[in-house]
């Protein structure tokens, strides 16, 4: 290899090497747009349960589409089997979208006057992720249900 071509090649490589990190860091910074209420699943769970265990249960039914074409409108329905009496009722239903910037969607505090522990709404999902429903019972235990939703077009643009 001639000295001239070697230097040319070397120069090109080093120029690329110099460019790559700057591209990566720019992409990282672009991704770093954070919402005003950013919260991770771990801290949201800790805030809801206060460190108590959450058991997955078939008593909680979470219905959400398996594939959502539009992440901006994803219908979510949660219902919990419960007699809803004064002594035995569902105190709260929490809906979490595990990969959104702020995972919390809604905390719904129910009373026995509801007659039925159910909640439905439509949420935004940024990417493909798990939707998590946590039910807090009047005896202080926490039950959960989870469903993966594949999102083709993100809803947090």
């Amino acid at each position: 290899m001639e000295r001239r071509s070697f230097l040319k090649g070397f120069g090109a490589v080093s120029a690329c090497a110099a460019l790559v990190p700057s591209i990566v860091s720019a992409a990282d910074e672009a991704k770093k747009v954070t919402g005003p209420n950013e919260m991770s699943v771990e801290s949201a769970l800790a805030a809801i349960t206060g460190g108590k265990p959450v058991t997955p249960s078939t008593k909680v039914s979470l219905s959400a589409p398996e594939i959502a074409e539009n992440g901006a409108v994803v219908p979510v329905k949660v219902s919990v089997e419960s007699p809803m009496s004064a002594n035995d009722h569902v105190k709260a239903i929490h809906v979490l979208a595990t990969k959104n910037n702020n995972v919390r969607c809604a905390n719904v505090y129910l009373t026995p006057a509801n007659g039925e522990a159910s909640f439905a709404t439509r949420i935004k999902l940024g990417t493909t992720q798990d939707v998590l429903a946590i039910a807090e019972l009047s005896n202080g235990t926490f039950l959960s249900a989870k469903q993966n939703v594949k999102v083709t077009i993100g809803g947090c643009g």
């Binding site: 919402g35 005003p36 209420n37 901006a72 409108v73 994803v74 979208a97 959104n100 702020n102 995972v103 919390r104 969607c105 809604a106 905390n107 719904v108 505090y109 709404t121 439509r122 949420i123 935004k124 809803g155």
Partner: peptide, 8 residues
């Protein structure tokens, strides 16, 4: 209900 910006 306490709701957040994740609602549609």
């Amino acid at each position: 209900m306490i709701t957040w910006e994740s609602l549609s």
